[in-house]
């Protein structure tokens, strides 16, 4: 089924893409879908007054961000504003220099054990997928559960197939990443992260390296994931997605959080001048 859909999309890319966008836009006001997603009052990520420098360059300035369990946050902002750096600090791909980051109650310090512990609980999906090209799709998915979670191979494969089915590509399990389309690769990357049963998922522009006709298949998977109640921080400029699933949209510029609000208000009544300018640029 999924295959057929992909094939059709491939045939008429331009039309499909716009069609997809309009459906997303239409779906957006349907609050019913969103309201059944519970946000708990437990804190998943707590960033207080966090600063980061690259050499002399002050990339992140006094970031304060509290994310609740089950919350879905979309981060947007101009290129170079520090979005990637901020979410990469959450799983310590980048080190922050001052302030405090607490993930799932564990504070991020130089303690390697704690870093590994946090990385096990936090999944990340990258712009360029970062799949392992020498391993099959299935091996990509089972690697971490086997070696990090010490799961028996058979069980890991079962779990992997389950997630590959959820992202609608179980039939690709024995291929290599290079044999898949960009959209399929990104869905594998999502499945690979999910196989570690993370409690939090970070997405760094997951669709911006994709051809237009593949964006929808990836966003659909992410919407499904949001509906499971996963805590998500998504850096993206897909505003349809933001309207559909986000509880909160955050706008960053020059290393600072400029404005945040629930999506409807954020898009219709932005307050800050920079936000207005940015929105006018990306929404045409």
């Amino acid at each position: 089924m999924a295959r057929q859909a992909t094939k059709k999309t491939a045939k008429a890319p331009a039309k499909r893409a716009t069609a997809a966008k309009t459906t997303r836009a239409k779906k957006a006001p349907a609050k019913a879908a969103k309201s059944n997603l519970v946000v708990s009052d437990e804190v998943a990520i707590d960033i207080t007054n966090m600063d980061k420098w690259y050499g002399d360059f002050h990339v992140l300035k006094g970031i304060d961000l509290k994310v609740m369990k089950g919350e879905r946050i979309v981060v947007c902002g101009p290129s170079g504003s520090g979005k990637s750096t901020m979410i990469r600090c959450i799983n310590r791909l980048e080190e922050h220099q001052s302030g405090r980051i607490e993930v799932d109650g564990i504070e991020l310090t130089n303690d390697l054990k704690k870093i590994d512990e946090i990385r096990r609980e936090v999944g990340m999906v990258f712009q360029h997928f970062n799949l392992f090209p020498h391993l099959t799709i299935l091996e990509n998915c089972t690697l971490a559960p086997i070696w990090v979670r010490k799961m028996p191979k058979a069980e890991a494969e079962e779990v992997a197939m389950e997630y590959l089915t959820k992202v609608r590509i179980p039939e690709q399990a024995n291929k290599y990443p290079g044999q898949l389309s960009g959209g399929q690769q990104q869905r594998v990357a999502i499945a690979r992260s999910l196989c570690m049963s993370p409690r939090i998922m970070l997405f760094d522009e997951p669709t911006s390296a994709l051809d237009p006709e593949m964006i929808k298949e990836v966003l659909d998977v992410m919407v499904d994931l949001a509906e499971t109640g996963m805590t998500m921080i998504v850096v993206t400029h897909e505003m349809g997605f933001a309207r559909q699933v986000a509880n909160r949209v955050i706008f960053m510029d020059e290393g600072q959080i400029i404005e945040q609000n629930e999506p409807e208000t954020f898009f219709t009544k932005p307050k800050h001048e920079r936000t207005k300018l940015f929105l006018s640029q990306i929404l045409h």
């Binding site: 791909l93 590994d116 990340m124 990258f126 360029h128 970062n130 392992f132 690697l143």
Partner: peptide, 12 residues
């Protein structure tokens, strides 16, 4: 990206 992909999965 390969290092980051592995690190993000918690591989030491």
């Amino acid at each position: 990206g390969q290092y980051e992909g592995a690190q993000a999965l918690g591989l030491p």
